[in-house]
């Protein structure tokens, strides 16, 4: 990709989107200011495509846009009623799967799941909630783990393994019993190598990994997605002030 080579493009919802080789449909679209709803993708980590919220149609076939390489000439559909319905259902699946009570959640207003749900126009979770039993882990002096809100995006796992080189987090179980675990025989976060300075502390898109004694430092109403919708924040429109952190 020298300056001389002509830019490669694919078409998305009728617009040309330029990309550089190696970019996925999602990263190219975001860089071009075109938002595709997503949850488990983070620009600093290799995409793995588990949440499927970023599903688009590529030449008529559904694919997760975060793991699908951008290809010259492809025709991509993203902002259609059909795909919005699909994404809405996936987000409703996640709300039904965990225990998500936004009004009492410390992350409300700065939560990616909530932000995407608003973006998709979700008004109810539709499906019967599963109400899983997920005890919190308050063993660590500085960090609370509230597993009720986990959407299994694996970002903390990836951050701890790749960035922090610690493997503090992992998954166990299978299917609907799949759950986040920590690297300790006791099963307690206090007995792991987690430190406040870890990357894993900063990547949770929902309210699982929380610093203790920092509740409501930013008032509700002034948080990240209170100023602008997630679709604007995600493509780089800076909010007036960054909520939460």
């Amino acid at each position: 990709m020298t300056d001389a080579s002509p830019p490669q493009t694919f078409q998305m919802d009728g617009h040309d989107v330029a990309f550089t080789p190696g970019q996925s449909i999602l990263t190219a679209a975001l860089a071009a200011g075109r938002y595709i709803p997503h949850l488990c993708f983070h620009p600093e980590f290799t995409a793995h495509g588990s949440c499927k919220v970023c599903t688009v149609k590529v030449n008529g076939q559904p694919h997760a846009s975060c793991t699908t390489p951008a290809r010259s000439g492809d025709v991509v559909e993203s902002d259609t009623d059909e795909l919005t319905q699909l994404r809405l259902n996936l987000v409703q699946f996640l709300f039904a799967e965990g225990n998500h009570f936004c009004p009492s959640c410390e992350k409300s207003g700065a939560c990616t799941l909530q932000g995407v749900a608003y973006e998709l126009g979700m008004t109810t979770e539709h499906y019967s909630p599963l109400f899983p039993d997920r005890p919190v882990d308050a063993s660590h002096p500085d960090v609370l783990l509230d597993f009720n809100r986990c959407i299994l995006c694996e970002l903390c796992i990836r951050a701890s393994a790749i960035h922090d080189q610690k493997h503090v987090f992992a998954l166990s179980g299978r299917g609907i019993t799949k759950h986040l675990i920590v690297n300790a025989e006791s099963g307690r976060l206090a007995d792991t190598a987690l430190a406040l300075s870890d990357k894993a502390m900063t990547v949770c898109p929902v309210g699982v990994i929380l610093r203790k004694r920092q509740g409501f430092a930013v008032p509700i109403g002034e948080r990240r997605y209170d100023h602008q919708p997630i679709s604007a924040v995600a493509v780089g429109h800076r909010p007036k002030e960054d909520g939460h952190e």
């Binding site: 039904a96 019967s128 959407i151 179980g173």
Partner: peptide, 21 residues
């Protein structure tokens, strides 16, 4: 299917359980 879903992706992990219920 609900018992055998690996649980990696949202549609299968949650969908198979909702369908079974």
């Amino acid at each position: 299917f609900a018992h055998e879903s690996c649980g990696f992706c949202t549609p299968c992990r949650v969908g198979t359980t909702l369908a079974a219920q």
